[in-house]
């Protein structure tokens, strides 16, 4: 599995924070998913090889066990991703309400295709399965926030709002 993990470096402060979190759960294999979720937030939304290694070491579990979990769950990525992860729902209730057109609007507004990250590192565009807000279909999650029902026109405004957020910071 490890050959799939991109071998790039995560910055030292992030790695230290991750090590500290992992260490508190030494010997607690059951906390692995929780640790991975927290680590990913600190490390450009990805579990790269260096992150996986430090978690394995600090928690005292084999690296293969860590990689095994990463490869199974959809929320984990081994490639570094943007600050905002846009996850467009493609399950049936959203599909029949026009999810594809909304997805195309995102691709156009961001000038990337599904799976890609914008060159400024701000957005990654992905599809996902049902996010549990089918009554707001077609729906999308951007990090922890839900938007829907969406029209292709609204997509342009949402993307602009997020770009604005960065400028304000």
């Amino acid at each position: 599995m490890t050959e799939n993990i991109s071998n790039c470096c995560t910055d030292k402060t992030a790695l230290d924070k991750i090590a500290a979190i992992a260490k508190t759960w030494k010997g607690r294999k059951d906390m692995l998913i929780e640790v991975l979720l927290q680590a990913q937030k600190l490390a450009d939304n990805a579990i790269t090889e260096d992150v996986a290694e430090i978690i394995a070491k600090e928690m005292g579990i084999p690296l293969s066990t860590v990689c095994n979990a990463i490869s199974f769950y959809a929320m984990f990525s081994t490639e570094k991703r943007g600050k905002y992860i846009i996850r467009m729902c493609k399950s049936a209730p959203c599909h029949i309400k026009g999810a594809e057109a909304v997805m195309q609007a995102f691709e156009k507004a961001l000038d990337i295709s599904c799976g890609g990250t914008t060159s400024d590192g701000l957005f990654t565009l992905e599809t996902c399965e049902c996010i549990g807000v089918c009554d707001r279909a077609p729906a999308v999650m951007i990090n922890d926030e839900v938007y829907g029902p969406l029209t292709p026109e609204e997509v342009i405004k949402i993307v602009a709002d997020y770009r604005q957020r960065r400028e304000e910071k």
Binding site: R28, K29, D30, N68, M75
Partner: peptide
């Protein structure tokens, strides 16, 4: 409270237990 990580199969009762134990679901 324990969190999933994006896997429909973890709704199945025994897959869910595997997941709480920190394994693939």
């Amino acid at each position: 409270i324990r969190s999933g990580a994006g896997a429909y199969i973890c709704g199945d009762e025994t897959a869910l237990m595997e997941s709480i134990e920190g394994k693939r679901g």
